[in-house]
């Protein structure tokens, strides 16, 4: 039983089934991968989990509690945080202010006392964005802005972290650092669901991978199982009849 359970979720846009009966279990303390070709429904699934998209069927559970009908901000307060494939940083604020917004919200709802400024600096340091802390985010290169988004997500002190293509825009060094950070975070007990196209990163970081194609989960397993799975190869490469 995972900390986050996606249970037979479907999403319908008009006549199109964007997500079709998808079930994923995200246990704490490890990274779960979600891969699949373009348009397979990965981001839609993320929107369902965070409440930005209402599912047409199925349930989302956090820690056993059904949160399918909770408002997005409630889910955030329950411990679901995410980053976005297409950046959704607060562009006209500085990197530090981006993190502060999240920290100050948490201080209100969790009624905890802490020095937001200090924690913001720590978080930016941790994701490797300390040197851009006082720059406006819309003047940053993509990679740094993604790191700011990550720091902002961590600032809500989540139980579950959803990462939507965090490595795109990062250089190889930054991608390696991201891998290390993922290990640290899961070691602290965080549950991570990772959508990513950088296969080396996915294969290295994930303990378990689900493959989404046409909105359906077509395969599940360990990285090695996934790499060897012919249906996954088909999903990515097309019918293999003319293959060598």
């Amino acid at each position: 039983m995972g900390l986050l359970e996606i249970d037979e979720v479907s999403v319908q846009f008009g006549g199109l089934l964007a997500v079709d009966d998808a079930s994923i279990s995200v246990p704490e303390g490890c990274v779960t991968g979600l891969i699949g070709p373009n348009g397979a429904g990965k981001t839609t699934l993320f929107n369902v989990i965070t409440g930005l998209q209402a599912p047409s069927g199925g349930r989302v559970r956090l820690d056993g509690a059904d949160i399918t009908r909770r408002r997005p901000y409630r889910r955030a307060r329950l411990g679901i945080a995410r980053t976005f494939q297409r950046l959704e940083a607060f562009g006209s604020l500085t990197a530090r202010e981006n993190v502060l917004v999240a920290l100050e919200m948490r201080r209100r709802w969790a009624k905890s006392r802490y020095d937001s400024g200090k924690i913001a600096a720590e978080l930016l340091e941790r994701v490797g964005a300390a040197q851009v802390a006082d720059k406006r985010v819309d003047s940053l290169p993509t990679g740094s802005a993604r790191l700011v988004e990550l720091a902002r997500a961590l600032a809500t002190d989540p139980k579950v972290l959803l990462l939507d293509e965090p490595s795109s825009g990062l250089d190889e060094q930054e991608t390696d650092a991201l891998g290390v950070l993922l290990h640290e975070l899961t070691a602290d007990g965080l549950a991570v669901l990772l959508v990513e196209h950088d296969m080396p990163l996915v294969m290295e970081a994930c303990t378990h991978i689900s493959v989404l194609d046409f909105g359906r989960i077509i395969a599940e397993g360990t990285p090695a199982e996934i790499q060897a799975d012919p249906s996954v190869q088909r999903a990515y490469l097309g019918t293999a009849k003319s293959a060598s």
């Binding site: 997005p72 901000y73 955030a76 999240a102």
Partner: peptide
């Protein structure tokens, strides 16, 4: 300002 820049991101930080 955060709300103006991105509503989606705002709700996901609570």
């Amino acid at each position: 300002v955060a709300l103006r820049d991105s509503e989606a991101a705002s709700v996901t930080v609570g």
